[in-house]
Design a protein around this nucleic acid. Structure first.
Length: 277
DNA sequence: ATGGCCTTTATCAAAGGA
């Protein structure tokens, strides 16, 4: 099972890239953020033509999240119960037996901004809600644009970013508190290239100079982490003409013991048949 | 050097993103 997240920075602009990306990567689930579309304008039929069902929660101009999937999603939810928020930043549901939560954490603007306080409130509400979700779903994935670089190695220049929004202590502490509920940062389950990032500013030739941050994440419950066989950042998509400023992140699941044995068995049988005269 | 770019909006300048 392949699950991915991508902040597209306007689905209207990026729709051709999204359709191309689906064809190329064949994910089971793709979560989108910053669709910036009201629900009545969501391109349901174009995405259906590519073989994907959709759930979405959008608004005019800002925010907006969506979940594209091969199989239908059940138990669909939008927003967090008990946290009234006109900004459309969260949705999810159960795909196969995996509960998927797609999030677009507030940016925060600046550490002295009222929007920063909103970001911290939003993250506290997320933590408490996820605590409850974990008690109900052993297979839970929380993915999206967290707008937080968790560690020094997730920032191209940690001295420069010290204390700044996206890397401030309070944001990083909030991220750790979510992990402490029992989530694993899938990207760090594997050896990764040095200076791996998911976002690069459009300005300053930041992408060419790899001046980025790793702020898009895929967090897995322990049970899913045990099945995870890969997590990669799709940097190639950031190189396209007229790109989003974020690159997609992809996890591969299904590495349970049974799955591994099954795939090892089929490889062996292929090898045997290939050796036959 | 405190900007640079991109997207949106009852555009043509300003806000927001990160």
């Amino acid at each position: 099972m392949k699950i991915a997240t991508w902040n597209v920075n306007s689905l209207k602009v990026r729709l051709p890239q999204v359709l191309e990306w689906l064809t190329l990567n064949q994910p089971d689930v793709l979560c989108l953020q910053e669709t910036k579309l009201q629900d009545e304008h969501f391109p349901v039929s174009e995405i259906a033509a590519a073989g994907y069902q959709t759930i979405y929660s959008g608004q005019k101009t800002y925010n907006g999240v969506a979940l594209l999937s091969r199989q239908p999603v059940s138990e669909v939810f939008t927003g967090m119960p008990g946290f009234e928020d006109p900004q459309k930043r969260l949705l999810g549901g159960v795909h196969d037996d995996v509960c998927v939560v797609c999030i677009y954490v507030p940016n925060g603007e600046h550490v002295t901004s009222e929007k920063y306080q909103y970001k911290l409130r939003w993250l506290a509400a997320l933590r408490e809600w996820l605590r409850e979700m974990l008690s109900r779903h052993r297979k839970l994935v929380v993915l999206g644009d967290f707008n937080i670089a968790p560690e020094d190695c997730d920032v191209h220049d940690s001295k420069l970013w010290e204390g700044k929004v996206l890397f401030s202590e309070l944001e990083r502490a909030a991220f750790r508190e979510v992990l402490d509920l029992g989530f694993i940062d899938s990207f760090r389950l594997f050896d990764q290239p040095e200076k791996s990032f998911t976002w690069w500013d459009y300005r300053m030739m930041a992408f060419r100079r790899n001046m980025g941050l790793r702020i898009d994440h895929i967090l897995l419950s322990r049970e899913l982490a045990g099945m995870c066989t890969a997590c990669v950042i799709d940097k190639a998509t950031r190189r396209l003409e007229r790109p989003s400023d974020h690159a997609p992140v992809i996890v591969e699941l299904g590495g349970s013991v049974q799955e591994k044995e099954r795939s090892a068995g089929s490889e062996a049988s292929i090898r045997v048949s290939a050796n036959e005269p």
